[in-house]
Design a protein around this nucleic acid. Structure first.
Lengths: 337, 337
DNA sequence: ATGAAAGCGCTAACAG
DNA sequence: CTGTTAGCGCTTTCAT
C-alpha cells in the first residue's frame, strides 16, 4: 500500500503538492502536476479514506434506516436511494431496525462515532425525544415517516390524501361499509391515512366502524388473516381499504380461495403500486407513491445539510399520491355493460 | 465532540489508560477503570471511528455487490446479510452494479481506498482477470455467483441440481418439449442451471431445442414477452423452465390473459420460492434456494478472511436446492381424480 | 499497573 | 507556485 509520502518521494516533490493534485487545488504548475500524476499511476496510488475521513471529519457515508429490505416498498426506496447516493459519490449503509426501538438506537451510534455523515430515517420506532439528541452529532433527515413537532427536514408523501382518494373511490362505487386495514400503531404515515379514510367517510356521512378496523397488517399473511376474520363477521363490509399491496393481495388471494368474487362480493384497494398489482387476477386498484422522487429529494436535502452543517431546520417537502384504478374495485363485467 | 484526551484529563489519567479501558485490555486496576468509565459517561464520550480505522487499518465495514435490490432474490439476500453483519458488529454498504462492468469496477475501489474491509460479490460482471487484482487490497468472497478458476472462497448453491430436478419433474409429468428460460448470458449460475436442464433432457433422451431457449429473462415483463413469443411458435412447448419466479409469474399471467390454462396447456416452473408463488392462481411450482444460510455463511467466511488476512484461498461451500411442487405443473383437476 | 511518545495517512495554515 | 510543520483521534511499543 503506497502512501502520499511514497508518491511525493518518487515525484521528487512534497506531500503538500501531491495533496494539491489529488484534490484539484489551484496553484500547481502543469509540469509538476504531470509528474505527480505519473508517480501516482506508477505506484497505483489511491488515497486512504480513513486518513481522509479523520483529517476532514467527513466519511462520505450516509446511513439509511428502514424496518427491513424485504418489504417491497422499502426495496424500491433503497434501490433509488443507493443510485442517488452513488451519483453524488456517497456510500450507503443500510440499517434494518426490524421494528425494534433498541436496534434503532444502536444504529444511531453510527452518527455519534462519526462513522457516517448523516442518517436518513425512513421509519421511526422511538419517540422523537429519544432521537433528537443525536442531532448534535450530525444531520438527521426524515423521509416517508414523519414527526409533527420535530425541527428537521422532512420529505413526505401526502398520506391523508392517499387514504382519502382511495376511500372516496370505494364510496363512489356504492360501498357503504368499508373496512380499514393498515399497519403500524405509532406510525404517523398510518395515522394520516386513517385521517384521510375517515374524512372521506365523513363527507359521505358514513360512520367509521371500529369493529372492521385492523391496524396491524403489513404483509401477505396478515392480509389472509384479515380476510378470515372479516368473513366471520356479522355485518360484513363490502369493501376494504389496505395500506399495502401485499396485504391487498393476501386478502384477494384468500377471498378467491374461499370462493368469493372480487370485486363483486368484496372490493379491495391496495397501496404502493407494486408489481404484483398487475400480476394478480383481478389486477389491484392501488395508490401510487412517488418513491423514487422522494428518495432523490431526501439524498439532496441530506447532502445540503452535511455541507451547510445546519441540522435543526424545519423543511417540509411533500409529494402527491395518485389513485390507479384497476379491477379489484371495479367489476369487469359491469364495465362491459 | 469529546476525545480520548478529554476523558484522560477529566479522569486524571493518561490517554493510554483510557484506551486500555475502551478496548478491555488487562492490567488496568479496577479503581482506575471505574474512574475512566465515569469520565466517559460524564462526557458522553464515544471513540471516533475514523481515527480507529486509520490506526487499526480496519473499518469494520463490508461491501456487498448485487445487480439491484429490487430483485426479490437479492432483497432477501441483503436482508439476511445485513442482519448477519450487524450481529457481528460490522456495517454493510450496498453496491448496485446494475449489470454494469464499469459500476462494478468503480465500486471495487472501495477496497483499494480501504473504505471497506472486504467485498462480497453476489453478482459478477467483469472477467475474473479484471477483479482478481483487487484482492491485493482485501478479501473478496464469491457468493451465489461463482467462477470456476478463481482462487477465492465461494459460497454457492447447487444450481445444476436445481435445473435438473425442476426439469425432471416436468418430464415426469409427461412433457416432451420443454422451453428453457433463464437470465444472464455470462452468468455461471445460469450456465449451471442450463447444464442441469440439459442433463435431465438427455437422461430422458429428449433433444434440447435452441428455438425455445431464452437467455435474457429476468423479470415479470420478460416473462410476459416470453409467453407472447412462445405462443407464436410452430412447435409449441407444453412446459417451460424458468430461472426466476417473477419470470414464471409473468408467463402465467400473460398465458391466462390469452385464455390458456396453466398447467394443462402450459406447465411452468419458477425458481427462488418467492412469496408470489403462493399468491398466484395457480400457485407456482418452484425451486427453493436457502438464501439465508448462504448469506450467513458468506458473512462468516468473510470475517474469517479479514481476521486471518489470507485472501487467496480456494474454499467451496455448497448448499442444496429443493423442488417445491405446487399447481403450475400439476393439474388440480387431475389430482382430484 | 501506568505513562510518554511515536505514528497511522492525510490536509491546511503559514511561510517563503 | 512550493515546502515545512502541526495535528485530526486513536493505539501501541517501550519505559518505568
Amino acid at each position: 500500500m503506497s502512501t502520499i509520502e511514497d508518491v511525493a518521494r518518487l515525484a521528487g516533490l512534497s506531500r503538500t503538492t501531491v495533496s494539491r493534485v489529488i484534490n484539484n487545488h489551484p496553484y500547481v504548475s502543469e509540469s509538476k502536476k504531470r509528474v505527480v500524476l505519473e508517480a501516482m499511476e506508477e505506484l497505483g496510488y489511491v488515497p486512504n479514506s480513513s486518513a481522509r475521513s479523520l483529517r476532514n471529519q467527513k466519511t462520505e457515508i450516509i446511513a439509511v434506516f428502514i424496518p427491513r429490505v424485504l418489504n417491497p416498498f422499502f426495496s424500491q426506496f433503497i434501490e433509488t436511494l443507493e443510485i442517488a447516493s452513488s451519483e453524488r459519490n456517497y456510500q450507503l449503509i443500510v440499517c434494518q431496525t426490524q421494528y425494534s426501538k433498541t436496534k434503532e438506537l444502536k444504529y444511531l451510534n453510527l452518527l455519534k462515532t462519526k462513522q457516517v455523515d448523516g442518517v436518513i430515517l425512513a421509519s421511526l420506532e422511538n419517540d422523537w425525544s429519544k432521537i433528537e439528541p443525536y442531532m448534535e452529532y450530525g444531520p438527521i433527515v426524515l423521509c416517508n415517516e414523519f414527526e409533527e413537532n420535530a425541527k428537521v427536514p422532512m420529505i413526505r408523501l401526502d398520506q391523508a390524501f392517499g387514504g382519502y382518494i382511495a376511500t372516496k373511490h370505494l364510496i363512489e362505487q356504492g360501498h357503504r361499509h368499508i373496512a380499514y386495514c393498515c399497519g403500524g400503531h405509532r406510525s404517523n404515515v398510518a395515522k394520516e391515512r386513517e385521517r384521510g379514510f375517515k374524512q372521506a367517510l365523513a363527507e359521505a356521512e358514513l360512520p367509521f366502524d371500529e369493529k372492521t378496523a385492523f391496524r396491524d397488517a403489513f404483509n401477505i399473511e396478515d392480509g389472509k388473516r384479515v380476510f378470515r376474520e372479516l368473513k366471520e363477521l356479522e355485518e360484513k363490509p363490502t369493501a376494504v381499504f389496505t395500506g399495502a399491496d401485499e396485504v391487498a393481495a393476501g386478502i384477494i388471494s384468500e377471498a378467491k380461495k374461499h370462493g368469493w368474487n372480487v370485486p363483486e362480493e368484496l372490493a379491495v384497494v391496495g397501496f404502493d403500486n407494486q408489481e404484483i398489482t398487475e400480476l394478480l387476477d383481478p389486477m389491484i386498484t392501488t395508490v401510487h407513491q412517488p418513491v423514487g422522487e422522494m428518495a432523490k429529494k431526501a439524498m439532496d436535502v441530506m447532502i445540503d445539510k452535511i455541507n451547510r452543517k445546519i441540522y435543526h431546520s424545519l423543511e417540509i417537502y411533500q409529494f402527491p399520491l395518485k389513485l390507479i384504478v384497476r379491477d379489484s374495485t371495479v367489476s369487469k363485467d359491469l364495465a362491459k355493460v
